[in-house]
Protein backbone atom coordinates (compact mmCIF):
# COMPACT_ATOMS: atom_id res chain seq x y z
CA UNK A 1 0.00 0.00 0.00
CA UNK A 2 1.45 3.32 -1.09
CA UNK A 3 0.61 6.29 1.08
CA UNK A 4 -0.94 9.59 -0.08
CA UNK A 5 2.23 11.56 0.73
CA UNK A 6 4.24 9.41 -1.69
CA UNK A 7 1.87 10.26 -4.53
CA UNK A 8 1.94 13.93 -3.63
CA UNK A 9 5.73 13.98 -3.41
CA UNK A 10 6.08 12.43 -6.84
CA UNK A 11 3.54 14.92 -8.23
CA UNK A 12 5.46 17.78 -6.59
CA UNK A 13 8.77 16.62 -8.05
CA UNK A 14 7.27 16.21 -11.52
CA UNK A 15 5.63 19.66 -11.25
CA UNK A 16 8.89 21.29 -10.21
CA UNK A 17 10.77 19.63 -13.07
CA UNK A 18 8.06 20.95 -15.42
CA UNK A 19 8.21 24.43 -13.92
CA UNK A 20 12.01 24.52 -14.17
CA UNK A 21 11.89 23.37 -17.77
CA UNK A 22 9.23 25.89 -18.71
CA UNK A 23 11.16 28.77 -17.16
CA UNK A 24 14.71 27.88 -18.16
CA UNK A 25 14.74 26.30 -21.62
CA UNK A 26 15.04 28.36 -24.74
CA UNK A 27 13.65 25.78 -27.07
CA UNK A 28 9.93 26.29 -27.46
CA UNK A 29 9.32 22.57 -28.00
CA UNK A 30 10.89 21.72 -24.65
CA UNK A 31 8.94 24.49 -22.90
CA UNK A 32 5.87 22.95 -24.40
CA UNK A 33 6.78 19.48 -23.11
CA UNK A 34 7.46 20.93 -19.66
CA UNK A 35 3.98 22.46 -19.54
CA UNK A 36 2.53 19.02 -20.33
CA UNK A 37 4.63 17.63 -17.50
CA UNK A 38 3.10 20.14 -15.07
CA UNK A 39 -0.39 19.24 -16.22
CA UNK A 40 0.31 15.59 -15.64
CA UNK A 41 1.62 16.31 -12.17
CA UNK A 42 -1.68 17.97 -11.39
CA UNK A 43 -3.53 14.97 -12.84
CA UNK A 44 -1.60 12.70 -10.53
CA UNK A 45 -2.72 14.79 -7.58
CA UNK A 46 -6.34 14.56 -8.65
CA UNK A 47 -6.25 10.78 -8.95
CA UNK A 48 -4.43 10.38 -5.66
CA UNK A 49 -7.11 12.42 -3.92
CA UNK A 50 -9.83 10.29 -5.59
CA UNK A 51 -8.73 7.44 -3.46
CA UNK A 52 -7.15 9.02 -0.36
CA UNK A 53 -8.94 12.36 -0.02
CA UNK A 54 -11.28 13.37 2.83
CA UNK A 55 -14.29 12.48 0.63
CA UNK A 56 -13.12 9.78 -1.81
CA UNK A 57 -15.29 9.71 -4.93
CA UNK A 58 -15.12 9.47 -8.74
CA UNK A 59 -15.19 13.19 -9.65
CA UNK A 60 -11.39 13.58 -9.33
CA UNK A 61 -10.89 10.96 -12.08
CA UNK A 62 -13.46 12.70 -14.25
CA UNK A 63 -11.60 15.97 -13.94
CA UNK A 64 -8.33 14.21 -14.78
CA UNK A 65 -9.94 12.91 -17.98
CA UNK A 66 -11.07 16.44 -18.82
CA UNK A 67 -7.59 17.81 -18.24
CA UNK A 68 -6.14 15.18 -20.55
CA UNK A 69 -8.63 16.04 -23.26
CA UNK A 70 -7.87 19.73 -22.97
CA UNK A 71 -4.15 19.03 -22.96
CA UNK A 72 -4.49 17.01 -26.16
CA UNK A 73 -6.33 19.87 -27.83
CA UNK A 74 -3.74 22.31 -26.61
CA UNK A 75 -0.94 20.23 -27.98
CA UNK A 76 -2.65 20.02 -31.35
CA UNK A 77 -3.08 23.79 -31.59
CA UNK A 78 0.31 24.56 -30.05
CA UNK A 79 2.15 22.32 -32.44
CA UNK A 80 0.29 23.86 -35.34
CA UNK A 81 1.36 27.32 -34.19
CA UNK A 82 4.93 26.15 -33.75
CA UNK A 83 4.94 24.73 -37.28
CA UNK A 84 3.74 28.00 -38.80
CA UNK A 85 6.22 29.89 -36.67
CA UNK A 86 9.07 27.71 -37.87
CA UNK A 87 8.02 28.10 -41.49
CA UNK A 88 7.97 31.88 -41.22
CA UNK A 89 10.97 32.54 -38.97
CA UNK A 90 13.11 29.44 -39.51
CA UNK A 91 13.61 29.17 -35.75
CA UNK A 92 11.73 28.14 -32.65
CA UNK A 93 14.19 29.63 -30.16
CA UNK A 94 12.28 31.82 -27.66
CA UNK A 95 14.85 34.62 -27.66
CA UNK A 96 14.88 34.89 -31.42
CA UNK A 97 11.14 34.75 -32.06
CA UNK A 98 10.65 38.42 -31.23
Amino acid sequence: MVSLSAYLTVALIVFCIGLFGALSHKNTLIVFLSIELMLNAVNLNFIAFTKYGFFPNISGQVIALFVMTVAALEVAIGLAILLTLYRNKKTIDLDEIY
Binding site: L19, A22, L23, S24, V31, L94, Y98
Partner: peptide, 13 residues
Amino acid sequence: RWKNPQRYGLVAV
Protein backbone atom coordinates in the same frame (compact mmCIF):
# COMPACT_ATOMS: atom_id res chain seq x y z
CA ARG B 1 7.04 40.65 -19.91
CA TRP B 2 7.58 41.45 -23.55
CA LYS B 3 11.34 41.04 -23.76
CA ASN B 4 11.79 37.97 -21.57
CA PRO B 5 8.59 36.04 -20.71
CA GLN B 6 10.46 33.26 -19.01
CA ARG B 7 12.22 35.47 -16.51
CA TYR B 8 8.92 37.19 -15.99
CA GLY B 9 7.41 33.79 -15.13
CA LEU B 10 10.27 33.11 -12.76
CA VAL B 11 9.68 36.38 -10.95
CA ALA B 12 5.98 35.55 -10.75
CA VAL B 13 6.69 32.14 -9.23
